[in-house]
C-alpha cells in the first residue's frame, strides 16, 4: 500500500497544485480498480508483486504526469531547434577563430622563442578554447531555453515584435532584395566582436604602438591595462548585446521595424557603455607621451616620433568626440535604412 502512495505522490508532485487533489483521488481509485481486477477480490489484500505489476503497467510517474499536464517537455522545441543549432555553430566557430587568432598573436610576440612559446601556449589555449566554447554553448542554450519557455515560436516573431499567426509577409525576402540581411554580415560581426573583446580583456597590452629598431624592440600600450581590467564586465556586457543583436539579424535574415528599433536600442546602450569607459580618460595610457619620448632618447638617432605623438594627442584628447561621431554615423545609417525601407516596414 505504501508503494501506491509513493507512486501517486510522485505523479501529483509534478502537477499544478489545483489539480493535485482530484487526480490523487482518481489515481487511487484507478489503482484499486486494477488491483481488484487482478486479485478478483478486495484490493486491500493485494500483495506487493501484484501492486508492482499494476504500477509497471501505468508506467513511470513522470510520463504519466506529463500526459496529465499535457505540457511539452522541451528545453528547446522543434520550432526553435534549427535556429538554435545554426546559432550554436556560428558562435562556436567565431569563438574558436577568435581564440586562435589571439593564440597566434601571442606566439608571434617578439622576445619569445616560438618553439617554447608554442608548447606552453598550446596547452594553455586548448584549455582556454574549451572553456570559451563551453561558455558560448551555455549562454546560447540559456537564451534559447528562455525563448522556448516564453513561448516564442520563432526568432522572426521575436525580432519583429509580432506574436500570433504566421503571415505571408513574414516570408524571408528573396536574395538581393533591399530587405535582405546578407548572412555574412552578422557572422563577420560576431567573429570580430568576439575577437576584439577577447583581446581587449585578456591581452590589452598588445594593443600598443610597436617599435622595432636595430635589434631593439619597444611597445607602448594605448590603454592603462589596470583600469581597463576594471571595466571588463562592461566590455563583456556590450559584446554580449552586440552578439545578441547579430544573432537576431542572422536568424531573421530580413529587416523589420522591430529589428531596426532593437538595433538602435543596442547602439545607444553600447554608446553609453563606451562613454562610461572613456569619460574620464584614465583608461588610456597617461604615460604614453613620456614613454615615447624616452624611447626616442634611448634610440638617439634623431627620430622624435612627432607624427605618432600628434596623432595620439589628437585622439586621446578628443576620444569622447570620436566615439560620439562614430555613434552618430551608426545611428544615421540605421535611420537611413529605416527611411529607405519605409514602404516595407
Amino acid at each position: 500500500m505504501e508503494l501506491i502512495a509513493r507512486y501517486v505522490h510522485a505523479v501529483i508532485s509534478k502537477l499544478p497544485a489545483e489539480q493535485r487533489e482530484e487526480i490523487e483521488k482518481e489515481l487511487h481509485g484507478l489503482i484499486e480498480d486494477m488491483l481488484e481486477e487482478r486479485t478478483g477480490h478486495d484490493s486491500g489484500s493485494a500483495d506487493t508483486a501484484v501492486i508492482e505489476a499494476v504500477l509497471l503497467e501505468l508506467g513511470p510517474p513522470s510520463e504519466l504526469a506529463a500526459k496529465y499536464s499535457g505540457r511539452r517537455r522541451y528545453l528547446i522545441g522543434p520550432e526553435l531547434f534549427d535556429s538554435y543549432v545554426r546559432v550554436l555553430k556560428i558562435v562556436g566557430m567565431a569563438i574558436i577563430l577568435a581564440m586562435s587568432v589571439v593564440l597566434i598573436i601571442d606566439m608571434l610576440q617578439p622576445g619569445s622563442n616560438p618553439a617554447t612559446a608554442f608548447n606552453g601556449i598550446v596547452g594553455r589555449w586548448i584549455g582556454t578554447i574549451i572553456e570559451a566554447v563551453v561558455q558560448g554553448f551555455v549562454w546560447v542554450t540559456i537564451i534559447f531555453a528562455v525563448l522556448e519557455y516564453k513561448g516564442v515560436k520563432d526568432a522572426a516573431a521575436l525580432a519583429s515584435g509580432k506574436k500570433g499567426n504566421w503571415q505571408p509577409s513574414d516570408l524571408p525576402p528573396i536574395p538581393n532584395s533591399e530587405l535582405q540581411i546578407k548572412r555574412s554580415d552578422p557572422i563577420v560581426s560576431i567573429i570580430l566582436t568576439v575577437l576584439f573583446s577577447a583581446i581587449l580583456i585578456s591581452s590589452p597590452e598588445w594593443i600598443a604602438v610597436h617599435i622595432s629598431h636595430s635589434d631593439k624592440y619597444f611597445n607602448v600600450p594605448l590603454f592603462n591595462v589596470e583600469i581597463l581590467k576594471a571595466y571588463a564586465p562592461l566590455i563583456w556586457g556590450s559584446a554580449a548585446l552586440i552578439i545578441l543583436k547579430e544573432i537576431l539579424r542572422l536568424v531573421t535574415g530580413k529587416w523589420s521595424k522591430g529589428l531596426l528599433v532593437f538595433n538602435i536600442v543596442i547602439s545607444v546602450l553600447v554608446f553609453i557603455a563606451a562613454l562610461v569607459i572613456f569619460a574620464d580618460g584614465t583608461v588610456l595610457n597617461g604615460q604614453f607621451g613620456l614613454q615615447i619620448q624616452e624611447i626616442a632618447r634611448e634610440l638617439a638617432d634623431g627620430k622624435d616620433f612627432g607624427f605618432i605623438l600628434s596623432i595620439w594627442n589628437l585622439v586621446s584628447g578628443n576620444i569622447i568626440y570620436f566615439i560620439a561621431v562614430f555613434f552618430i554615423f551608426d545611428l544615421a545609417w540605421l535611420l537611413y535604412r529605416g527611411y529607405k525601407l519605409r514602404r516595407y516596414l
Binding site: 482518481e26 480498480d33 499535457g70
Partner: peptide
C-alpha cells in the same frame, strides 16, 4: 462511465487503451 469501466468496455470491443493514456485524455 468511470475511467476503468471504460477501459474494460473498450477492451471487450477490441479497442485497447492503457489507463495511463485514458485518464489524462478524459480530463482533457
Amino acid at each position: 462511465q468511470y475511467g476503468y469501466s471504460l477501459v474494460a468496455m473498450l477492451e471487450s470491443k477490441g479497442i485497447t487503451i492503457d489507463p495511463g493514456t485514458l485518464y489524462p485524455l478524459l480530463r482533457r
